[in-house]
């Protein structure tokens, strides 16, 4: 077995893929959240500030989705093929949502007419909500598993995607992003808009906690096998425990006005949630509950070891570079939003 620092390459690439997806959820999560709460902001000026808060960075955040897609395609092509052909319709809707969101940010500011701007506000908000919900829906279905045939291809019908668990995960994802986005915006705004966002952030925290608790209870009661990992390894229970602490820390930091810590806490919460998902599903990328022998795992879906090595080298060179210029861009646009002649 080929290994690197004691782990085989499949596991390494699973970790890289997981890290990229977490990066995507944390980064695009706050701008999707900011988009989803857009219509709660009433005044033109507030909406512009909120949009310009994510203006220079949302595009860089979405790069993580592209890298994640490439990482899955390159490392686990069988899983890439099965997942995207299975989720054909929800994924097309997700992609159309991405198109509309991108162009609404770009188009909105180009004309001053109130009707034009109001229409794009609605498109922007609606697209952000649809993207968040469909991401959650797909995540929920992946966690639960999909019916697969002997060729490791999807063998079920579309309506099965809309099961109670997936819908709950979907709503929880939206709530999580809205909370994350509202906290992000508190760091970028001042005065009355800032006060409004502080209140909104508190409301979304409640929204998130409620939907999270319901989803967790449902999982424990009706899909018990999803907690097998933690039942058999009590030591790892530290992770859910840690997550509860970080969630509890969010309202605490918001209350004392330490929004940066609150934002960090919600970012860590997202990462821990995905780590828990990864621990539960590993070694499977797509589990087939009816026919476990058809499941797609990091071992039977993987590219050759040589490709894995090449990919790992790419990741080792590329990730620090991306990190450096992403931080540089964030640093350039740090602080409260100031509108100027180039703003949206």
């Amino acid at each position: 077995m080929n290994t690197f620092l004691g782990f085989d390459y499949n596991l390494w690439w699973f970790l890289v893929f997981g890290a990229v997806i977490s990066g995507y959820a944390i980064l695009d999560g706050f701008d999707l959240g900011a988009g989803s709460l857009h219509l709660f902001l009433r005044k033109e000026e507030s909406r512009r500030i909120a949009m310009n808060a994510i203006g220079p960075i949302w595009d860089g955040n979405e790069v993580w989705l592209v890298i994640g897609g490439g990482a899955l395609f390159a490392g686990f092509p069988v899983a890439y093929a099965a997942i995207f052909s299975a989720f054909y319709v929800p994924f097309m809707i997700f992609l159309v949502g991405l198109i509309f969101r991108a162009v609404s940010i770009e188009f909105r500011s180009k004309e001053p007419w109130p009707l034009w701007r109001r229409c794009w506000d609605i498109v922007y908000c609606f697209a952000s909500v649809v993207i968040s919900l469909s991401l959650g829906l797909m995540l929920g279905n992946v966690v639960e598993g999909l019916p697969l045939n002997a060729n490791r291809e999807f063998d079920g019908d579309l309506l099965s995607f809309f099961n109670p668990f997936a819908i709950m995960v979907s709503i929880t994802t939206l709530a999580l992003f809205m909370m994350h986005g509202a906290i992000f915006l508190t760091m970028k705004t001042e005065n009355r808009l800032f006060v409004k966002l502080h209140v909104l952030a508190n409301n979304f925290i409640v929204f998130f906690v409620v939907s999270f608790v319901i989803t967790t209870l449902y999982t424990l009661l009706y899909i018990p096998h999803l907690s097998d990992f933690f039942k058999s390894r009590p030591g790892w229970f530290a992770i859910p425990l840690l997550m509860i602490l970080t969630i509890a820390n969010i309202p605490r930091q918001v209350k004392v006005g330490k929004y940066r810590y609150a934002f960090a806490s919600s970012a860590v919460t997202i990462a821990l949630l995905l780590i828990m998902v990864a621990l539960e599903v590993f070694p499977y990328l797509l589990y087939s509950p009816q026919h476990p022998e058809n499941s797609i795992s990091v071992y039977n879906a993987a590219s050759s070891t040589r490709t894995m090595k090449i990919l790992l080298i790419m990741a080792l060179i590329g990730t620090p570079l991306v990190g450096i210029y992403t931080s540089f861009v964030f640093w350039t646009f740090k602080g409260k939003v100031k509108l100027d002649e180039m703003s949206y």
């Binding site: 897609g69 490439g70 395609f73 390159a74 590219s303 490709t307 790419m314 590329g318």
Partner: peptide, 11 residues
Amino acid sequence: FGSALAAEGIF
């Protein structure tokens, strides 16, 4: 193809 696409994304 996947490796080329991944390289495109990251680099």
